[in-house]
Design a protein around this nucleic acid. Structure first.
Length: 273
DNA sequence: CCTTGAACCTGCGGGC
DNA sequence: TGCCCGCAGGTTCAAG
């Protein structure tokens, strides 16, 4: 998936085209995603207007008239596309929403790690998928002191902690490596061992790398397409991710890869201390 | 409480 | 060509 910048990019793309549109018909498949799709989505959504789209962490929250929310999570391979008029159904399509103005929103997810849920908007604070999420990294309240508090006493590797959505949301495997490189901090450091200066650097690096990716329209690996079908292009700007063996942009020594928590970490052992 | 590792599922590219 | 392996942007759950 899509990490925060990609989800934010999708949110903006969908908002621009679908805000105000009224649901005409809904189709959904039978295969469960991370959890079963809500039953009778057709009757739940038909006739409602899409009033707004919000993002919390990597979740998209489609707000509908009548105080209802459709929650979408793209997992690793989820894609949302808008088409004009009918399109032949594709393998791994799971949800298709037709709007009265002729636009069609399709949720396709090969690996089925995504989520679709539906709830009354007022119940959001207690929603099991949303209730325990950490701070939003682009909020002004996400400060070095805040990050320090979230990492306090944690002995796990810093990179693994940054991907923990209870520590800070939206940072996934790519941007964790990228932020640590920018901050010049080793992914192997115990999470709770950062100095005030390092917390300041890392907080700034997280914000900067996410903002740059959003400004570039979200990154694109093999499964990701923006909501209008255009490919994002931030992947060309990765400084370390996916670049094992290539020269570090700062010092020229070789970028290395290691495995942490079952995921690949890319880093420069010379510049990241 | 914390940390680690496996599990969920499909597709793709590389090596033989 | 085909097969097997490792790898992929996320999250949850069990076990230590």
């Amino acid at each position: 998936m899509p990490e925060l910048p990609e989800v934010e990019t999708v949110k903006r793309g969908l908002s621009a085209k679908l805000t105000g549109a009224v649901v005409q018909a809904v189709w959904h498949g039978k295969k469960p995603l991370r959890q079963p799709l809500p039953p009778t989505l057709q009757s739940k959504l038909a006739g409602r207007a899409l009033t707004a789209i919000d993002r919390r962490a990597k979740y998209l929250l489609l707000r509908f008239s009548g105080d209802k929310t459709l929650l979408l999570h793209l997992g690793m391979s989820g894609r949302l596309t808008i088409s004009e008029g009918p399109l032949p159904r594709q393998t791994h399509d799971h949800l298709v929403i037709d709007f009265a103005d002729g636009q069609r929103l399709t949720f396709n997810d090969a690996r089925r790690f995504g989520v679709v849920d539906f709830f009354t908007s007022g119940d959001e604070a207690a929603h099991p998928l949303l209730a325990h999420l950490g701070p939003e990294p682009l909020d002004h309240s996400f400060t070095p002191a805040c990050l320090g508090q979230q990492l306090k006493n944690r002995k796990t590797a810093l990179k693994v902690a940054l991907m923990d959505q209870q520590v800070v949301v939206g940072v996934g495997n790519i941007y964790a490596s990228e932020a640590l490189f920018r901050a010049k901090i080793s992914p192997l450091r115990p999470a709770g061992s950062l100095s005030a200066h390092e917390l300041k650097s890392l907080t700034a690096a997280i914000k900067a790398v996410l903002k740059a990716a959003i400004a570039a329209g979200g990154s694109s690996l093999r499964d990701y397409v923006q909501s209008d079908g255009e490919l994002g292009y931030f992947q060309h700007r990765f400084k370390v991710y996916g670049r094992e063996g290539q020269p570090c942009p700062d010092c020229g020594s070789k970028i290395e890869r290691l495995t942490q928590g079952g995921r690949s970490t890319f880093w420069c052992p010379k510049t990241q201390i």
